[in-house]
């Protein structure tokens, strides 16, 4: 599991809230820092991929664990 600097629990939140919360959290972080996001919305798998592609923040790792989706995003 990659190291991370901050964590965001977006469990129970539905589209587009996980993305919006992630964006907001990343805003307060430094370039190169890593955010770990926990989500339960199955749509977030494709959405975080698309978010990373469009914003230039790097999706380092995405995984699923017991109905939870875990994402590691490195701030551009």
């Amino acid at each position: 599991m990659p190291d991370f600097n901050q964590e965001l629990d977006a469990s129970g939140l539905n589209c587009p809230l996980p993305i919006l919360r992630a964006k907001k959290t990343l805003k307060g972080m430094e370039s190169g820092q890593v955010l770990r996001i926990i989500a339960t919305d199955p749509g977030s798998v494709k959405d975080f991929d698309a978010f990373a592609n469009q914003t230039g923040n790097e999706l380092i790792e995405a995984s699923e664990e017991g109905g939870k989706y875990i994402f590691f995003i490195k701030k551009k």
């Binding site: 589209c15 587009p16 993305i19 964006k23 978010f51 469009q54 914003t55």
Partner: peptide, 11 residues
């Protein structure tokens, strides 16, 4: 509102 807020988050 969903599309506008998401678009804004995407820059």
């Amino acid at each position: 509102f969903i599309l506008a807020s998401t678009a804004a988050a995407l820059g």
